[in-house]
Design a protein around this nucleic acid. Structure first.
Lengths: 215, 215
DNA sequence: GTTAGCATGTAAGGAGTTACATGATTTT
DNA sequence: AAAATCATGTAACTCCTTACATGCTAAC
């Protein structure tokens, strides 16, 4: 038992249920709104995942309100158990490739509110180096190539490089604002830290708005 | 036989081998340079794929040069057969979801040089509507949501929307330049069409360079 | 009263990855 | 002669999708 469903869905489900109890159908809609620009999950993966989490005692069915007719229930609302919350914290504390790779970074970022400041920083930096490696690798491989590429291939390269460079710049802004907000000496308790983050992110957004003096 | 390995690797391999014969190891490096910003393949998928293509007669081992010592050969260089070229054309002619979804669009675009102008246009437009659907879906779902999100979730949304919007603008440029180059009445043969495309893409790049008057 | 959307599930399978195993060839 | 990297391959596994099956509930 406690079979560690290594995928990204586990975190997505636990994280969502931590905010509020939900049933499968709506849970999926939430996830596909939250992560819609990056990926989408199907019922065929969600329901088995819920069953697994239920088996492992990480979630339980919530009691339906008293007035519901007994024996008939079409919605199954799940909520986190204590073990579920523990497991979620465990997942949110892992600052490794499983947090900053393409498939997983978005979900980890989405729940940064529940992640320690230190871990947030290491994940952001991890993702940045991952992307920088990628840029490095492709750039040097490209430099070694003597045959010139056709215009479509070139355009694809250009667009790909630009997209990754943009994400690196975005990460730079985020890392800066994280550093700034954790550098403030006061406020190690939860409430104040939260408003610090809010402010820091706002600053980052404002900077990003300005037309960039690139390069 | 002729087991249609539905994945994206088949196209990637056939397309690469169409340009020049290669052995597995180098083929992988090429692919990971070509598509490095989007995805990366491992040997564990490449070699089985090559075996499958060999079984189906789409590729063959190239004869080693005569002076090579007989019976000893560490590199296995593959090249396309006539059937392989046919299959490649078949794959490049399909203008459907299998061409414009996230996992496959890059590879299809990379080989646009070998794709008919009409098909190119339909793939670009297909991808654009796919992305626009995604924008629509998330935007309306977001509008229906009454509870306000935390700053990290918001920032993720913002970044995601922006990235997709950028790709849509990129596609718009590409579609425009495709339209312009196929609209020219002369030149239906290969040579002239090719230089038209080159020019059109250059124009698109130049426009993209200018600071955008956004919105 | 029938379409459309809500709600839950399952079986089969696809498209890859990881980790391992092995050996040749080049570089230091 | 050691280390790096070139080169080929396989077995087991992972995570997720597709397609199917079912029934409830609200809207028109």
């Amino acid at each position: 038992m406690t079979g560690s469903r290594g995928g990204v869905l586990e975190l997505a489900v636990l994280g969502s249920l931590h905010e509020t109890p939900l049933h499968g159908y709506e849970l999926r809609k939430r996830l596909n709104t939250l992560l819609g620009m990056f990926r989408a999950f199907s019922y065929g993966s969600l329901y088995p995942c819920l069953r697994g989490l239920l088996n492992d005692g990480l979630i339980v069915e919530e009691e339906p309100p008293a007035e519901t007719v007994l024996g008939r229930r079409s919605k199954i609302v799940y909520k986190l158990t204590a073990e579920g919350k523990e497991r979620l914290q465990e997942l949110l504390t892992q600052a490794g490739p499983s947090a900053w790779e393409d498939e997983s970074f978005g979900i980890h970022f989405a729940f940064f509110r529940h992640t320690e400041a230190e871990v947030r920083l290491r994940i952001l930096e991890g993702r940045r180096s991952r992307l920088e490696e990628r840029l490095e690798g492709v750039r040097t491989a490209l430099a070694r190539t003597r045959e010139r590429l056709d215009s479509y291939t070139l355009e694809l390269q250009r667009h790909g490089l630009e997209s990754v460079e943009r994400e690196v710049r975005w990460l730079n802004e985020l890392i800066d604002s994280e550093r700034r907000s954790t550098a403030t000496p006061r406020a190690e308790e939860e409430g104040a830290a939260d408003s610090d983050q809010q402010q820091a992110l706002q600053e980052a957004s404002e900077r990003a708005e300005r037309p960039e003096s690139d390069k």
